[in-house]
Structure formats: C-alpha cells, structure tokens
Write a protein that binds this DNA or RNA. Structure first.
Length: 281
DNA sequence: AAAAAATTCAACCGCTTATTT
DNA sequence: AAAATAAGCGGTTGAATTTTT
C-alpha cells in the first residue's frame, strides 16, 4: 500500500514515489501529443500530479520508446567498463555510446557490479578545471577562425580531422568494438590525452608504460581486490590490473593536491570479464 | 521455513548548466 | 544584462526482491 508514509505521498501538491500505470499513461499521452519537453506543463494539461522534474525523469529513464529493456549484455558491459575507465563517473557521456541505455541505468550497473573503492573528489574537480580550460581555448580558437575566411576555416577543420596520429589510448578506445565517442568527447579526450602524457612524463608515474600503451588486465594480476578502502597499500599489484585512464586522472590529484596523499586509486579489477572469457583491451 | 543480509534499481535530491523571458 | 525557468547531471536513498544463513 502506498500513500500513507513517505513513499507515494503528496508534498506541496506533487505526488512522489513509484509511478502507477495510469500516471504512465497520462505522461505517454502527453508526450504523444506535445512531444518531449516543457515538462512543467504536463501537470497543467493532463492533471497529473507530478512535478516537471519527476515527469522528465520518468520519461527519460523508463517510458521512452527507444529504451532497451532487459539485462546489460556482456558487450555492453565491456563498453561500460572501457568508457568508465576513460571518463570516470560521467554517466551521461558513457550512456551516449550505449543506445537505449540511460545514464541512470549505467550508473546503477556500475555501482552494483564494479564499485569497490571511492574515487577522490579531486579527480573530478581537476578534470572539470581542465575541460573548462579546454572549452575556453576552443571558443577562442573558434572566434579566430570566424575572423578568418571560410576557405581557411575549412582547411583547418580538415587538418584537425586528419591529424590524430598520436595517442595510443585514443586509438585503442576507438578501435574497440561498439565504442563510438561523441565528437566533442573525442576532442576532449584527445586534449586530455596530451595533457596526461605530459603529466606522466613529468611525474614519472610507475605505471606510465601501462597507461600509454594498452594494458589494463595483466595476466598475473587477477587482483581479488580488497573489498573496502583504497588499493594504495599495494598499488603495483591491486591497481596494476586497472591502471588505465581512470587511474591516470589521479595524476590530477597529484597536481592538485601534492601533499594530500591524494592518488586515490579506484580499486577496480575485472575478474568477471575473465570468467566470461572476455578480454578487456 | 523463516529471518537476516545483501542486492537491485526507480526515483529522489541538490546542484549546475542552458534557455527563455 | 539579468532574473527566472527548464533541463540535465551525478550522488544517494530506500522499498522490493533475491540470496544466504
């Protein structure tokens, strides 16, 4: 029974908690007539007592017809792993490469299957800073390009398109099955790669060779992965199997917070892939 | 058989970013 | 230009379900 306590209650006029079939019907009908978006008017037009936010969420994560139902396939799983190694907890970015899967779904899947340690906040902060910088650079570049003639613009774009012959990790990622990064992401990644290479060199990371080539699952390191806490007691063993990009970002921590002891590893090893006979990288 | 523990995942919250007014 | 509104994101929660004891 719902409606008595916290779940299924009404609060400030809005219903909360699990959606009923009737509510779904109303929302689906609304979208059929008015399309996606303007979620706040759902309540006004249909009488559904749900906030716009709630409606959007329900549609995006559950009612959308293009959603893929059913379990995550092994292929999808390896994509998730791969992209999480690249992007960390940027679930929506990852979801873009998995048609029919939502960020929420991927996030849940990751958390329930793979999450073991806790990544440092600094990773994402440093990363955000980097990406922001990158974005600013890009928009500057764009402005410059606009001032120059269109011919030149095209020439430059071509150059940029052809010119990715460096970056082993990128090549590795894009040659992997079923992974296609959004253009913007790919560009970010490319810059990130360069940046990280520099950092690697600078800090002489012991796993440098691992990170710049395409290891990740070392045969010897089945790494039963200490259940809780960081892997930094034995970084070269526990982390060894997974020193890919996710760990690379930890270098941001080094930069960001040199004496904080921050190099927080993601204790993520992938024995399940082996069980399934799947090679990761 | 049943109680406890663990897992799953839909939906929430707060915050940030984008768009509109 | 700035305030308001909408959309989007990621972390977290907790009811329901499944597994273990």
């Amino acid at each position: 029974m719902e409606g008595q306590f916290g779940w299924g209650r009404e609060e400030g006029g809005w219903r909360k908690g699990p959606w009923t079939a009737q509510e779904d019907k109303l929302l689906v009908e609304y979208v059929r007539q008015h399309g996606e978006g303007r979620w706040n008017s759902v309540a006004k037009l249909t009488g559904l007592k749900r906030s716009g936010k709630s409606c959007r969420l329900r549609w995006v994560n559950y009612l959308r017809p293009d959603l893929k139902r059913g379990k995550i396939t092994p292929q999808e799983e390896s994509v998730i792993l791969e992209l999480h190694a690249l992007w960390g907890n940027r679930w929506s970015t990852i979801a873009r490469s998995l048609p029919g899967r939502t960020d929420n779904e991927i996030k849940n899947y990751w958390r329930t299957h793979f999450k073991k340690g806790k990544p440092s906040k600094n990773i994402e902060r440093a990363r955000a800073r980097f990406l922001k910088q990158r974005r600013e650079m890009q928009s500057q570049l764009q402005q410059q390009q606009q001032q120059q003639g269109q011919d030149q613009q095209q020439r430059q774009r071509q150059q940029a398109g052809d010119g990715h012959d460096d970056g082993a990790v990128i090549r590795e990622a894009s040659s992997s099955p079923a992974v296609s990064l959004a253009r913007q992401d790919e560009e970010d990644l490319q810059m990130l790669q360069q940046d990280m290479d520099d950092l690697l060199f600078q800090f002489c990371c012991p796993m440098a060779s691992c990170a710049s080539s395409s290891c990740c699952l070392l045969p010897g390191a089945t790494a039963s992965a200490s259940e809780e806490g960081s892997s930094w007691d034995h970084p070269q063993l526990d982390g060894g199997a997974t020193w890919g990009w996710g760990s690379l970002w930890n270098l941001d921590d080094v930069v960001d917070d040199v004496d904080g002891g921050a190099c927080g590893g993601w204790d993520t090893s992938f024995p399940w892939l082996q069980e399934q006979g799947l090679a990761f990288y």
